[in-house]
């Protein structure tokens, strides 16, 4: 029973192949629930943007395009690191697997740091929704609505990032104790799927919150 694949085979499965495919299908199904969840927010945002074009344009012009673009590049880099992590796992290269996971976590933390500094900036400019919100334009209410969606959607994305970093930490721990090998590394692939998906969400958030404010 020293075969790591056999050790990891749960009793309800007949073959490791079946177990791997089931795990992968499970993760993909979960990601589709996430598509619908962010999709609902995206739909609501679209409705309000159609109803209140001026207010949403004003809100969008408050975004810092430089920080947004840097964050996009950071996240794309983490995706590359995650993909490399998977390649290393497939080759059984545990040292480089661990290094890639650490890179993903660190870059993810940098992303969150930038994101939260943006939040603080918005708060100081009285753009955080609620009673401390201030806006002198005639579309103040609609600008606030823009920021409501901005905070809910990017906030929810940030929560997913934090969970993702937690998953990476767990995978790193399992790498460190030697759970993974060239034959068995399904959790790396599954965790990677989640991480890449969070990246995809950000690509759309960047497009709907940051880009519309650039042209006047």
């Amino acid at each position: 029973m020293s075969d790591p694949v056999a050790l990891e085979l749960r009793e309800q499965f007949a073959t490791p192949e079946q177990q791997r495919e089931t795990a992968s299908a499970g993760m993909w199904i979960f990601l589709m629930t996430e598509v619908l969840m962010f999709g609902a927010l995206f739909s609501a945002y679209t409705v309000y943007r159609i109803l209140h074009p001026q207010g949403f344009a004003l809100g969008s012009s408050e975004m810092d395009i430089l920080l947004g673009s840097i964050n996009t590049a950071i996240l794309l880099t983490t995706s590359l690191m995650m993909a490399f992590a998977e390649s290393n796992a497939q080759e059984g290269n545990e040292r480089w697997l661990a290094i890639c996971l650490i890179a993903v976590m660190l870059l993810g933390a940098v992303f969150l740091y930038v994101k939260f500094s943006e939040y603080i900036e918005h708060y100081h400019e009285h753009k955080a929704p609620g009673f401390w919100f201030e806006d002198s334009s005639p579309y103040a209410n609609n600008v606030q609505l823009f920021f409501v969606f901005y905070f809910i959607m990017t906030g929810l994305h940030a929560v997913h990032m934090i969970i993702g970093i937690g998953i990476m930490a767990f995978l790193l721990f399992r790498t460190w104790v030697g759970s993974f090998s060239a034959q068995y590394h399904t959790p790396i692939v599954i965790g990677g799927l989640y991480w890449h998906f969070v990246d995809i969400v950000w690509i759309f958030l960047y497009a709907i919150f940051y880009l519309p404010g650039l042209h006047r």
Binding site: S24, W28, I29, L31, M32, V35, L36, G39, F42
Partner: peptide
């Protein structure tokens, strides 16, 4: 997997 992914996308389009 491809059916699952298309399902999620199609259902999002139903909604929007």
């Amino acid at each position: 997997i491809r059916i699952i992914v298309s399902g999620g996308i199609i259902w999002f389009f139903f909604m929007i």
